[in-house]
């Protein structure tokens, strides 16, 4: 029942994603592509934060490392198709290294450690001008070709990004359904118990960072080729916080949480343009209100409804039992 509705929902959503761009102007298509890129990045962060429980505030650094890897390699004459796996590999290794502090510190302390990493990475992007172009960035980043087809057009690049997002979404889905998914969740819910049951907390912690980083790296590579110009600005601490919010707003530990969260994170700022200088204030307040109302994110709404219905049914059953008992007692005394 639940499975069926999930399948129907996913099919409808996929169909919508396939036809939607035909009804949009090129800026709309660009925005949709932008959204997909952030879904991909947030899916990775959802693994690290939502499933494995590692409070990472450095995700934008991986996003940036992916983007710069592709941009620098393409400027050096390498193909995008070499840059993409290179971005993934570099992010995997960096992710493992960034995971090490998580073996020692947790919660807010881990958040600060990863924030520090993000700041350091951002400084490298800004200061290593000979490679990164510093604050001037790298422009005219080309879009790749696929089987001889140019992905230059907005529509073509959208479908390409959609394809990559779906493939990586399926890979993550498979991973989360395998024993690894349970191990990550056990690590999040109770690392001490998990270790006492044979879960290698160290390996799974490092891997949750590394795999999450790969998703950010791939998203960064797609981002570089989408916007075709990168500078350090979108890879700073602010972006990491934004990505974290996307995960939290959508629902950490919900597979489709990042889809919703990224939509809020990408589309809401567009809608709030009218607010201009007040935009950040309005956005921040909206997030605070949402977190008070729905601490487990938007996708927790169905679960909440279900829980409420179940508790209502349980109390109705209790009331019925009490009534029945009272009726029996009444009969007993009457007889």
């Amino acid at each position: 029942m639940k499975k069926q509705s999930a399948i129907i929902f996913t099919s409808v959503a996929l169909l919508a994603l396939l036809v939607a761009p035909h009804f949009l102007k090129s800026y709309g298509v660009y925005l949709l592509t932008y959204w997909l890129v952030f879904i991909l990045a947030a899916m990775g962060l959802n693994l690290t934060v939502g499933y494995a429980g590692q409070k990472s505030l450095g995700h934008a650094a991986f996003f940036g490392i992916g983007a710069y890897t592709v941009a620098i390699m393409m400027k050096a004459g390498f193909s995008f198709w070499l840059g993409l796996p290179a971005a993934a590999a570099i992010c995997f290794v960096t992710g493992i290294l960034v995971g090490f502090p998580a073996l020692r510190v947790q919660t807010i302390y881990l958040a600060f450690a990863t924030l520090g990493f993000n700041t350091a990475a951002w400084l490298v992007m800004r200061n290593e001008e000979q490679y990164t172009g510093g604050t001037f960035g790298i422009n005219n980043i080309a879009r790749p070709e696929l089987f001889g087809l140019s992905l230059d057009g907005a529509l073509a690049y959208y479908y390409f990004t959609l394809g990559v997002t779906i493939v990586f979404g399926l890979l993550l889905f498979g991973l989360l359904r395998s024993p690894w998914g349970k191990a990550f969740t056990a690590l999040r819910d109770n690392p001490i118990r998990a270790e006492s049951l044979g879960v290698d907390v160290r390996n799974y912690t490092l891997l949750s960072f590394a795999i999450g980083a790969v998703y950010a790296g791939v998203a960064g590579a797609l981002f570089a080729s989408l916007v075709q110009f990168i500078d350090p600005a979108p890879f700073g601490v602010g972006q990491s916080i934004m990505m974290y919010l996307m995960v939290v707003i959508g629902g950490p530990g919900y597979f489709f949480g990042p889809v919703v969260g990224a939509a809020v994170g990408v589309v809401l700022p567009e809608w709030l343009r009218f607010a201009q200088d007040w935009y950040l204030f309005v956005f921040g307040s909206a997030v605070v209100l949402l977190m008070i109302w729905l601490p487990d994110g938007l996708l927790s709404i169905p679960d909440r409804i279900r829980a409420r219905r179940e508790s209502r049914e349980a109390s109705a059953a209790r009331a019925a039992a009490v009534t029945a008992a009272a009726a029996n007692a009444g009969k007993g005394s009457g007889a």
Partner: peptide, 13 residues
């Protein structure tokens, strides 16, 4: 126990 996992998944993990 792992609070958010089902009882069965608690046993399996």
């Amino acid at each position: 126990v792992f609070g958010k996992m089902s009882v069965r998944d608690n046993l399996i993990v």
